[in-house]
Simulated assay, not measured.
Amino acid sequence: MFRGEGRPAVHGYDSWVAIGDSFTEGMGDMAPDGSCVGWADRLAELMAVQRPGFQYANLAVRGKMLAEIIAEQVPLAEEAAPDLVSLCGGGNDIITPGTDPDDVAADFDAAVARLRAAGSEVVLFTGPDPKVQPLLRRVRGKVGIYNGHLHAIAERNGARLVDLWSMDALHDKRAWCEDRLHFSSDGHRRIALRTAEVLGVPVVDDWREPLPPEDPKPWLRLRQDDLTWTTTHLLPWVARQLRGESLGDGLTPKRPQLTPYAVDRTHHHVF
């Protein structure tokens, strides 16, 4: 069902440029053709349904460090000067050993100030609470420090903030995909709903809706799942870290130009 179909324009945005890394590219939320959907595309489709002519670009590429986002994507968003820019970055820096969240936050702050100076409204995202995931749990303290900076950055620059840490629905493992690094389709759907709420975009569904009870898995099955994850996802991730490689090497943005979002009513992914 298309939320907003047949209604007058109900939000105040004519254009949006989404910048960032795999979170905004949409990894973990896959379309039937194998492409990434993600919270941003889901929300953009809803906004386009509600406001004909709505323009959207998604410059995010998986694996990008904050310095790369600032060098490659922020200038394009500044030049386009859309009504709205979404910025989520620094997560790949935070999970890298030896990085200081204070330094990452200082760079992030400067980027937000640039985007605001260009005249765009900016929406930011805290990191989610990684306690539920074994790989990310080890950097929970760094994520918490970084999140504190993000709250201050949003207040200082007059930006909006989507607090992923406080979303109880994301504390459920079913909100995450098999790699335990990215969100599942339902996780992305709920984040899109939460972002719509922050931006004042009307929706029907509620991101707070509890997940149905889950049947507990036998201990042996859990250990088998852990082994599969270790060989399929953890070891390749460690190997890429050691080689200085990224999943995004050689990739280009999926929506590199600010163009009208064409709503496909036969293959839509609105909530």
Results as ranks from 00 to 15, higher is better:
6 G>V: 13
11 H>E: 02
11 H>G: 05
12 G>W: 02
13 Y>Q: 02
13 Y>N: 02
15 S>W: 07
15 S>E: 07
20 G>S: 03
23 F>V: 13
23 F>G: 13
25 E>I: 02
26 G>T: 08
33 D>P: 07
38 G>W: 09
38 G>K: 11
39 W>Q: 14
46 L>W: 07
46 L>Q: 15
47 M>I: 06
48 A>K: 03
49 V>Y: 09
50 Q>Y: 09
52 P>V: 07
56 Y>T: 03
56 Y>F: 08
61 V>L: 10
66 L>K: 13
71 A>T: 11
71 A>Y: 08
73 Q>S: 02
73 Q>H: 06
75 P>E: 05
76 L>N: 06
77 A>F: 14
80 A>I: 08
83 D>Y: 03
83 D>V: 04
87 L>P: 00
87 L>I: 00
92 N>V: 01
94 I>C: 07
97 P>N: 00
98 G>M: 03
99 T>E: 11
101 P>Y: 05
104 V>N: 04
104 V>W: 05
105 A>F: 08
108 F>A: 12
108 F>W: 10
109 D>G: 06
109 D>K: 08
111 A>C: 13
111 A>F: 11
114 R>G: 12
117 A>Q: 14
121 E>V: 07
122 V>D: 00
130 P>A: 02
130 P>M: 05
131 K>I: 09
132 V>C: 05
133 Q>F: 08
134 P>C: 03
141 G>P: 06
143 V>P: 04
145 I>W: 01
149 H>P: 06
155 E>I: 05
155 E>D: 15
159 A>D: 00
163 D>M: 12
168 D>K: 15
169 A>E: 09
169 A>M: 12
171 H>Q: 14
174 R>T: 09
176 W>Q: 14
179 D>T: 10
180 R>T: 04
182 H>D: 10
186 D>F: 12
186 D>Q: 13
187 G>W: 03
193 L>I: 06
196 A>C: 03
196 A>R: 00
198 V>H: 01
198 V>D: 01
205 D>F: 04
206 D>M: 03
210 P>I: 00
210 P>L: 02
212 P>W: 04
215 D>M: 12
216 P>D: 11
216 P>K: 12
235 L>P: 10
236 P>L: 08
237 W>C: 09
239 A>T: 09
243 R>K: 15
247 L>R: 06
248 G>H: 04
248 G>T: 01
250 G>W: 06
258 L>C: 06
260 P>V: 08
261 Y>H: 12
261 Y>W: 15
261 Y>R: 15
263 V>M: 09
264 D>V: 11
265 R>P: 00
270 V>L: 10
271 F>L: 14
271 F>S: 13
